[in-house]
Amino acid sequence: MAVTLAFDVYGTLIDTHGLVAMLKGMVGDRAAEFSRTWRERQLEYAFRRALMQNYVPFSVCTAQALDHTCTLYKTPLRPDQRTALLDAYRTLPAFPDVADGLARLRAAGFRLYAFSNGTKAAVRTLLDAAGIADLFLGVISTDDVRSFKPDPAVYSHFLGAAGATDAETWLVSSNPFDVIGALSAGWRAAWVRRSSEALFDPWGLAPTVTVTDLRDLAAAIAP
């Protein structure tokens, strides 16, 4: 059976900091810092909800993280600005290497799935807006099991939904917590190091491969 690749979406395929230019018109020169904090809180809220087993859709984590970040930075948004940001978050841009990298992997015979904390509808909207939806066999969401990565249950759910086994499945992610979660579940994992400043957690687990560009992934994981 062909190797299955489970692609994280937010931060790996889609640039979660793609709204910095928009944020500059709302929060000024702290836009990049604001965006980083928003993303950190979004993930933190997902982790905490998974641990508490108090699930809400990822979009709620995103909205609540935005509200927290506004309070932290003492930059209240008007209701129309808040709505505009959350609407724009549904159509964030893909990274420049994504379309070509995915096309090369598909041409090489890999089975490609999007695997995300976002709901299927939210992820399909993102992939459609980025023009890459047709490169995937499907979208598999942690929403199906009402939890978030790196809960072991979500990696198990992926295998069942994709009709794959852990021995033939790779996670592809820029998020170290996700890579470690997949490795802990018995998968192989490719870390997409999208910044030279990105650090991998010193947990005694290392990515199976590391790339900085998705266009290099097919060669890196070829048998």
Score class of each variant (00 low, 15 high):
Ala2Met: 07
Leu5Arg: 00
Leu5Gln: 08
Thr12Asn: 13
Leu13Arg: 05
Thr16Pro: 13
Thr16Trp: 07
His17Phe: 11
Ala21Tyr: 07
Met22Glu: 06
Gly28Ile: 04
Glu33Val: 03
Glu33Phe: 00
Phe34Thr: 04
Arg36Gly: 01
Arg36Thr: 05
Thr37Met: 02
Trp38Ala: 02
Trp38Phe: 08
Arg39Met: 04
Arg41Trp: 00
Gln42Cys: 10
Tyr45Gly: 11
Phe47Tyr: 12
Met52Lys: 10
Val60Ser: 14
Thr62Ile: 12
Ala63Pro: 07
Gln64Val: 12
Ala65Asn: 11
Thr75Tyr: 00
Thr75Gln: 08
Arg78Met: 02
Ala84Phe: 01
Asp87Tyr: 00
Ala88Gly: 10
Ala88Gln: 05
Tyr89Glu: 04
Thr91Gln: 12
Phe95Leu: 04
Phe95Tyr: 11
Asp100Thr: 14
Leu102Thr: 03
Ala103Trp: 10
Leu105Phe: 05
Leu105Pro: 00
Ala108His: 08
Gly109Met: 04
Ala114Gln: 03
Ala114His: 01
Asn117Met: 09
Lys120Thr: 13
Ala122Gly: 08
Val123Ala: 06
Asp128Thr: 15
Ala133Asp: 15
Asp134Ser: 15
Leu135Glu: 11
Leu137His: 13
Leu137Phe: 12
Gly138Leu: 15
Ile140Ser: 08
Ser141Ala: 10
Thr142Tyr: 02
Thr142Gly: 15
Thr142Ser: 15
Asp143Met: 08
Phe148His: 07
Lys149Ile: 14
Pro152Gln: 04
Pro152Ile: 06
Ser156Cys: 06
Ser156Val: 02
Gly160Glu: 03
Gly160Asn: 04
Thr165Gln: 00
Thr165Met: 02
Asp166Ser: 11
Ala167His: 04
Leu171Ala: 13
Ser173Tyr: 09
Ser173Thr: 11
Val179Asp: 01
Ser184Asp: 01
Ala185Ile: 11
Ala185Lys: 10
Gly186Phe: 04
Trp191Leu: 03
Val192Phe: 10
Val192Thr: 05
Ser195His: 15
Phe200Arg: 02
Asp201Met: 14
Leu205Cys: 11
Thr208Ile: 09
Thr212Arg: 14
Asp216Ser: 12
Asp216Pro: 05
Ala220Val: 03
